[in-house]
Amino acid sequence: MIAPHPTRPGPGRFISFEGGEGAGKSTQIKLLSERLQAAGFRTLVTREPGGSPGAEIIRHLLLSGIGGLIGGAKAETLLFAAARDDHVQTVIAPALADGQWVLCDRFSDSTRAYQGRLGAVPPALLNALERVTIDGLKPDLTLILDLPAEISLKRAAARRGDSAPDRFESEGLEFHRGLRDAFRQIAADEPKRCALIDADADIDTVAARIWGAVRQRLLLALSDGTEPE
C-alpha cells in the first residue's frame, strides 16, 4: 500500500477518460481522484471541451450544435482545437509542471473518434491541429470506458432527465455504435497508452477495474518496494 503523504514527490501524471455518452466518465473520474488523494497525490479534475474560462465558452457553442450551422465536422474540429489550446496552456501544462495528477474527462482521442472517424475529418488536419494545440503532450494513460451503444444511450437519457439532449446525445444509435468502434480501435492501436475498461457493470466494479489499470500502468512504477492497494 502507498502510505498517504501530503506532498508526495515526483512528476505529475496525465490521465484521460474516454468513451461514449453515458459511459460513466464523470462518476469514475471523481472516484479515482478521491482514491489518488487518499494515497497522497494532488489531483486536478478537468474536462473537454472546457476546463478553462475560454474553453468553457467554446463548450457552450459546441454542445449547442453550432458546428452544423457553420461548416459541420471541420468547423467543430477547429472549435475543439481552439478550446484545447487554451485548456492545455492555462490549466493542464501548469498543473503537470507543478507535480499534480491531471484527470481529464475527454481529450484529443474524442476529437479523433467523433470528428475524425465519424465526421470524416482528414487525419492530416487532425495531426496538424494536434501539433499546434498539444505539441506532443499525450496522456500517460487513457482509460476508455467501453459500453454497448444501446446501454450508453439509456444511461445518458436517464442522466439528463427532462433536459434536451445535446449535440452529440441527439445522434442516432448507429452513430453511437460507430463511436464505440472508434474508441475500441484507438485502444487497439495504442495498447501501451490505452486501457479498455469494461463499463457494463456497477459503479464499484468499474472503479476497481480502473484502479487496477492505474496501479499496474502508473503506480507500481512510483512505489518504493511497496504496492498500492
Rank of each mutant, 00 (worst) to 15 (best):
I29F: 00
G119D: 03
A157L: 09
T43I: 04
F80L: 15
P123V: 05
S108V: 14
L96Q: 11
L78V: 12
L153E: 00
D166G: 10
A38Y: 08
P165Y: 07
E171W: 11
G116S: 05
L103F: 08
V88P: 09
R106I: 01
G72K: 08
L32T: 08
V132Q: 15
L69K: 15
A164L: 00
A81N: 12
L141K: 08
S170G: 07
A97M: 13
V88A: 06
A164Q: 05
S108A: 15
C104P: 00
R106C: 05
G50D: 04
F168P: 03
F41Q: 08
A82N: 12
E169V: 08
R155M: 00
S33W: 07
R35C: 10
D98M: 13
Q37H: 13
I58M: 09
D85N: 15
P122Q: 02
T77C: 10
L137T: 01
P49C: 04
L145H: 02
F107P: 04
G68N: 11
V121F: 07
P53F: 11
A164Y: 04
L141V: 11
G136T: 09
I58D: 02
P49H: 02
L79A: 13
E171K: 15
S152D: 08
K30Y: 03
I57Q: 14
F107M: 07
A157I: 06
T90F: 00
E48F: 09
I134G: 06
H87Y: 14
L44F: 10
K154V: 14
G161R: 01
R155E: 02
I66K: 06
S170Q: 13
G172N: 14
E150F: 01
E34P: 03
P165W: 01
I58S: 03
L137A: 01
G54R: 07
A73H: 01
L79V: 10
E150G: 12
R84K: 12
D98N: 12
L153G: 01
L147E: 05
I58L: 12
R106K: 05
A156Q: 06
A83E: 03
T43C: 04
S33K: 00
G50L: 01
G68Q: 10
P94A: 07
L145I: 08
V91N: 00
D98G: 13
A73E: 06
A39T: 13
E76W: 03
Q100H: 12
G51Y: 05
A81R: 03
G40D: 02
L61R: 03
A157T: 01
A120M: 15
L125T: 12
D166M: 04
K154I: 13
G51S: 09
H87N: 13
L31H: 14
R160L: 11
R160Y: 09
G136S: 06
A39P: 09
G40A: 04
P148E: 08
E56Y: 05
F41G: 05
D105T: 10
G50F: 04
L78H: 02
E76T: 05
T77E: 13
P122V: 06
F41Y: 13
L143Q: 10
A55Q: 11
T46Y: 08
T77L: 06
P123E: 11
